[in-house]
Nucleic acid binder design. Sequence first.
RNA 1: GGCGACGUGGCCAAGUGGCAAGGCAAGGGUCUGCAAAACCCUGACCACGGGUUCGAAUCCCGUCGUCGCCUCCA
Length: 496
Amino acid sequence: MTLRIYNTLTRQSESFEPLTPGQVSMYVCGPTVYDNAHIGHAMSSLVFDIVRRYLEYRGYQVRHAMNYTDVDDKIIVRANDAGEEPLHLAERYIEQYAQHLRELNVLPATVYPRATEEIPAIIEMVGGLIDSGNAYAAEGDVYYRVESDDDYGKLSHRKLEDMNAGARINVDERKEHPMDFALWKAAKPGEPAWDSPWGPGRPGWHIECSAMVFRHLGEQIDIHGGGNDLIFPHHENEIAQSESLSHKPFARYWMHNGMMQLSGEKMSKSLGNLITITDFVASHEPDVLRMMILNTSYRRPLTYSDEVVEAAGRGLERLRSGLNPALPGASGAATGVLASLQAEADAAAGKFTAAMDDDFNSAAALAVLFDLVRLINQTRDAGATDAELKPAQDVLRELGGVLGLRLERAQKDADAAPFAALASSLQAEISDAAIAAALSAATSLDAAGIIAALLDARVQLRAQKQWQLSDTIRDRLAVLGVVVEDSAGGSSWRWG
RNA sequence: GGCGACGUGGCCAAGUGGCAAGGCAAGGGUCUGCAAAACCCUGACCACGGGUUCGAAUCCCGUCGUCGCCUCCA
């Protein structure tokens, strides 16, 4: 079986064959850091994190680069408005985005190049493009000459003439052709600038990516990714620049994720209809966003709504239920039941891979996990022990991990004080001296120890049919974040 | 105006020629003192209209609708 990837360039799903067997070079366009990032940016990073994780699961060694555009017009405008140094403002937002990536459980890229750190390479490239006749300098700016590129438009599948016809571009007199784009921009007084053969200035947006790719990954890469709003002009221009110099196909597979939608429109900074990553993670687990993305095709738009978020959160909980321990008092399941579980667990990885091999069909892959969860839960209900459940749970854990999901329930290192206080206050309400004494003895333990003692006391109270008191214990533990669940063989608890 | 994507049960969504995965929600049930969790059961003929085919959600044509790109944008 081979991995197939939908290539924007050919508009087809193709078998994935990297340039170097066993190795993959992947470049993903990161954000322009002039403001708080929103969950649309997060979506892109998550999509390619899933791609990267799956490639590694498939045995590829992945060299992954994601850039930060840390100098451009918007950054300069923002900084001027705020009275801050542009590069300082960019630095702040880079740090913030890096923190978001960690929270979202996105694996660190191999390199995080920044435009401002690539200036020499950019100047060299721009010079090379002038030498080759693909670019020209004009009053301190340098423009790429689109008519010098025979197949300009091949990625976005449009012809120069067509673009011309509908172009709403204010024609710049210095450009030979309206679609020519800036490789180098002359600096206005007060703007960040670097010396160049064309005078002080800064790089145009598109050239930085080409320079970074060439320098960090090589003239040809396997996968180039980003949001589908970058197809034109950004990626189109990257191809033009890069191939004009290298005369080789720039990227073998162009992957583009769909846009996050909110209230019927693309979420974007310019429209202002956005939810920042900060806001999202303040009220949701980061993996909920990942679940939302996994549940659909990465190429399609994802509409954000409270209902979708809710469903993703519950789905995540459901996956986690598969990792729950055996029921209290479990004594083992019938061999036939265990054999079925084993067979399903063995088959799961194959089904999972088949799904993901089909252009990262994560929704289908997720379905495999849900099926496995159901069987694990059935087996648990049939009396399986922890040891009997473990092999299937290990498969669930591993495959969930390939998708970047953290299924293990958080083991909080909780403060024991509130639990000790609870145990103490309950002593007074418990008439049975032995139970009260046991609770008293437990107050010096750690949180988990006290909780265990509370549950133990509750078991005895329930045996005495003291329902009100046992419900009180359950309710008060719930307030402290502990979920108590009773079953035929006893009680168990977990952090809720 | 040009290019493209999409329209599947209440919601999200996979499937792209052979009798429609999965998740969420809802209803019923098992378990249970109650609760929770888990488990079991229940629902769609795939926007609409034509056509191709032995056979279409899946291919073709048309209509309606939604969205994206064509300007900065993940």
